[in-house]
Amino acid sequence: MNRVYAHAVLDFCIAFGVVLGGAMLAGMAALFLWRPPAETVLEIASRIKIWAVVVAVGGSIDPIRVIEANVMEGYLSPAVQQIGYIVCAFLGAHLATELVQWMCRNPG
């Protein structure tokens, strides 16, 4: 399998899992704290979305440095790859947030 494709899919799945797992665990914690679980899950899913992207792409500023260094030297391919990884991670986090919102929607 292509290494770039595999890395993009991994970033997508990591970001998806961070948002979904964090929101579900926050919902369980809300039950113990006698807070409304659906509201808590929705709030946490939207708050940790950006952090899921950061976790998926490496957890630091290194991807931004790779983009900067390669663009300054005229190499666009590595920079485009890093931007693609960030986009894939964002899509995973966003899809998980949308899934949480869909699950918490009132049936009425």
Rank of each mutant, 00 (worst) to 15 (best):
S46L: 07
L20I: 12
I64Q: 00
C88L: 12
G59C: 01
W102H: 12
R47K: 15
C88Y: 11
G92E: 01
Y75S: 10
A93V: 07
P63C: 10
V87A: 12
V55L: 15
L20T: 03
G22E: 06
A29E: 04
P63E: 03
I14N: 06
H7P: 00
Q82H: 05
R3M: 03
M103W: 04
P37N: 04
R35V: 00
Y85S: 13
F12V: 08
A15L: 03
H94C: 08
A26F: 01
G21T: 09
L20C: 07
A96S: 14
G108V: 01
V80K: 14
P63H: 02
I67Y: 04
R3I: 11
N70P: 05
S60E: 03
V80D: 03
V54M: 14
Q82N: 05
N70S: 11
L31A: 05
I48W: 07
A30R: 12
S60L: 13
M72A: 14
R3C: 00
R3F: 05
A69K: 15
N2C: 03
A26G: 15
G27M: 06
A26D: 05
L95I: 14
S46I: 13
C88G: 01
V100G: 02
M1A: 10
K49E: 10
V80Y: 08
A96G: 02
I14K: 00
M72W: 00
L76V: 11
W102C: 09
T97G: 04
L10H: 12
V53N: 09
V54A: 12
I14A: 00
F32G: 13
V19C: 02
G17T: 06
A23G: 00
G92C: 08
V54S: 05
L95Q: 02
G21H: 03
I64G: 05
P78K: 05
G17K: 07
D62W: 12
